[in-house]
Design a binder for these strands. Structure first.
Lengths: 162, 162
DNA sequence: TATATTTGTGTAGTCAACTACATAATTATG
DNA sequence: CATAATTATGTAGTTGACTACACAAATATA
């Protein structure tokens, strides 16, 4: 095991470390499901929860509420349909929209899945204790969101050009 | 623009938000390069810096120092070779290893690229000010690293089973 | 009302990481 | 010294996000 070069870079390695942490979490999530014998993907839980609250939503509505691009939503939900957790119908008033909702199977399995998710939530909350991790996410979203990072960098860049 | 459902979930939405922030940063990085007319990918900078410091490294050495899986390193470096920034030779003592180093082009372009990267670094540092974002990354790495998240969750899970 | 614009969905192709497996070279072992 | 184990690289296939483009339906406009 050699040194972690990225960590040594300070703020210079920020994005790369964030990426690694993120990938780590996804891998861990996959391991967790495997361990518990659950056949769902790490990114499905938000869709489950969203449709539990809002019953019937279109692709676009889901994309807007999760701040995802619509093709991503199509990919995720298609897999969930294939796995039997979602079914799609058509909107009465608009023939373009495809309305998605949870299936019987989804509703039956949900309580068990929610137990897992709640455990994960509690674990994270306890690990961070008083550290205000959510406040940190807020800050990052505000800092990097919509051209934030580009502006930030270009400002510094132009400052140095003089 | 509708509500951000994920944000409402509190710690339950943690991983998803982290993923979003991360993707956001990559997209922003890509935009930045485009704006400045630079033909490199967001994840190349660590390789540049690593090989600037260590001149000649093998695939495995790079993977170890960056904590990446070796196939990821192969993919990245192959693209950099194609773009003319890296060249690979063979190790004298070991015919299996492929040694990578920066090309003339890379060394010539590097100062200009480093100006951009430094600006990004400064921007991030200023945005976080006294917030100790790096300490937060440390904490996340420690918390989620090597089975951390799985253990964390399973502990809570089993606690609730009783 | 005919045409233009917007909106919802879908497809294609890109990028970045991963695991699992294959193969060849080197090193260790019996 | 022959064989076994390890190590370095490479390939294939998966997941998950994205943008750009295409097309059909609905809405707005002239």
């Amino acid at each position: 095991m050699e040194n972690d070069f990225v960590k040594e870079l300070g703020y210079f390695g920020f994005t790369m470390r964030l990426k690694r942490i993120n990938d780590m979490l996804i891998q861990e999530g996959r391991k967790l499901y495997k361990e518990l014998g659950v056949d769902i993907e790490p990114n499905w839980y938000v869709i489950f929860e969203l449709l539990k609250v809002h019953q019937r939503l279109s692709i676009t509505e889901i994309a807007n509420r999760l701040l995802l691009a619509h093709p991503s939503v199509i990919t995720i939900t298609n897999k969930m349909i294939k796995a039997g957790y979602l079914e799609s119908g058509t909107d009465k008033n608009d023939n373009r929209v495809r309305v998605l909702k949870l299936t019987e199977k989804a509703r039956k399995k949900l309580p068990a899945y929610e137990k897992i998710w709640k455990s994960g939530e509690k674990g994270i909350a306890r690990a961070f204790e008083d550290k205000d991790a959510l406040g940190f996410l807020d800050l990052m979203e505000k800092t990097f969101g919509q051209n934030g990072f580009v502006k930030l960098t270009l400002d510094e860049y132009r400052k140095d050009q003089n």
